[in-house]
Simulated assay, not measured.
Amino acid sequence: MTKHEELKNGNVFSVGEKNEAYAKYFVGQSYLKSLVADPKVNVGVGNVTFEPGCRNNWHIHNGGYQLLLVTGGEGWYQEEGKSAQFLKAGDVIVTHDGVKHWHGATKDSWFEHIAITAGTPEWLEPVNDETYNKL
């Protein structure tokens, strides 16, 4: 059974549309609802929802950072060279400039977070199935 299936209908914020613009940087299906897209504000704020098993590729934020505010479900966050961290609602992640990392849902749960992002993302290789399936 899939955990936290209610997230597919939205939680605090709307689930948004299928994340087609960034689909090539994800394994599985994600959804994106832009919350702040003001050109006078130098950060993007979006609600990102992941179907079970969905995760983004390894990536780096250059000249900025990323804050993740977990609002629902169960997920993972991992920085290169460190163990993956299990995430649940209420967790906060701070990713500093230049840190290679990935995040996404667990295999059996929907996952949702608010991403506050500054700088330019550099998208890298996918998280391989072997690494992900060991979690």
Rank of each mutant, 00 (worst) to 15 (best):
V27F: 07
G10V: 09
K33Y: 10
A115T: 10
S109G: 10
L32P: 00
K134F: 00
E6W: 13
A21L: 14
E51A: 14
N47V: 05
H61F: 08
G98E: 10
Y65N: 12
L124G: 02
G73R: 00
A84K: 13
Y25D: 02
N56L: 11
G73W: 00
G28K: 07
V45W: 01
G10T: 08
H96V: 08
A37N: 15
P39W: 06
V15S: 13
T131Y: 00
A105C: 04
G63P: 08
V70D: 02
V99M: 09
G63M: 09
V94N: 11
K40R: 15
A89Q: 13
E122C: 00
F111I: 09
K100W: 02
H96Y: 11
V45H: 10
N128R: 09
N62E: 15
D97G: 02
I114P: 05
D108V: 05
S34Y: 02
H59W: 07
T120Q: 13
D129E: 15
K3N: 13
K18H: 04
G104F: 04
S30E: 06
K82A: 14
K40F: 12
K134W: 01
W110D: 05
I60C: 04
T71Y: 03
S34P: 09
W123P: 04
T71F: 01
I114C: 07
N128C: 08
I60T: 14
W102K: 10
N9G: 14
D108W: 04
P121D: 10
P121E: 10
A21R: 14
F13R: 02
D108K: 07
N19W: 13
H96R: 14
H59S: 11
H59A: 09
S30W: 10
G81R: 08
G72K: 05
V15K: 14
A23H: 06
P39F: 11
N19P: 06
V99A: 12
T2N: 02
E130F: 02
G46A: 15
S109Q: 06
E17T: 11
N57G: 06
G16Q: 05
W102E: 05
V70R: 00
I114E: 11
K100Y: 04
E125M: 05
